[in-house]
C-alpha cells in the first residue's frame, strides 16, 4: 500500500500499485466490481493521473480502464462504510486479486 486510507473532507482515499501480470483485465475487473458492490459507499477509481474518476461498481467501466501493470490505481469513497471500502479495495489490488469463493 502506498497510502493508508485517509479522510479528505468527506471522502476516503487510497492508492495502490497494480502488480497483476497483465494489468486490469477482465478477471481482476470482475473481482474489483463485485467487492465494490458489497459496500454502500459511492466508490470511484482511476488510473493515477487520469482526469476522470469512474464508478467502481460498473464492471464495463472498470474493464475499460485498461490500467497497465505497475500503474497506480487511486480509489476514493464517500458514505457510511467508505473507509472500509477503500481499505478492502486497496487490499484486493495489493494482494493481486486472490481467488475467493
Amino acid at each position: 500500500m502506498l497510502e493508508t486510507p485517509k479522510a479528505n473532507g468527506q471522502d476516503f482515499t487510497g492508492s495502490v500499485r497494480l502488480i497483476h501480470a497483465v494489468g486490469m483485465h477482465a478477471r481482476p475487473a470482475v473481482k474489483l466490481t463485485k467487492l465494490a458492490k458489497k459496500f454502500k459507499a459511492h466508490i470511484s477509481i482511476r488510473a493515477a493521473d487520469a482526469v476522470e474518476w469512474i464508478n467502481a461498481k460498473s464492471v464495463a467501466k472498470v474493464m475499460a480502464l485498461r490500467a497497465a501493470r505497475d500503474s497506480i490505481i487511486e480509489i476514493k469513497a464517500s458514505g457510511e462504510d467508505a473507509e472500509a471500502a477503500v481499505a478492502a479495495l486497496v487490499d484486493l489490488v495489493e494482494t493481486d486479486f486472490p481467488d475467493s469463493g
Binding site: A26, V30, T33, K34, K37, K38, K57, V59, A60
Partner: peptide, 12 residues
C-alpha cells in the same frame, strides 16, 4: 453474460 452475471452477483 459476464457483465450481467457480475451485476447479478451483487443482488441487483
Amino acid at each position: 453474460a459476464v457483465m450481467a452475471a457480475t451485476e447479478a452477483a451483487g443482488g441487483s
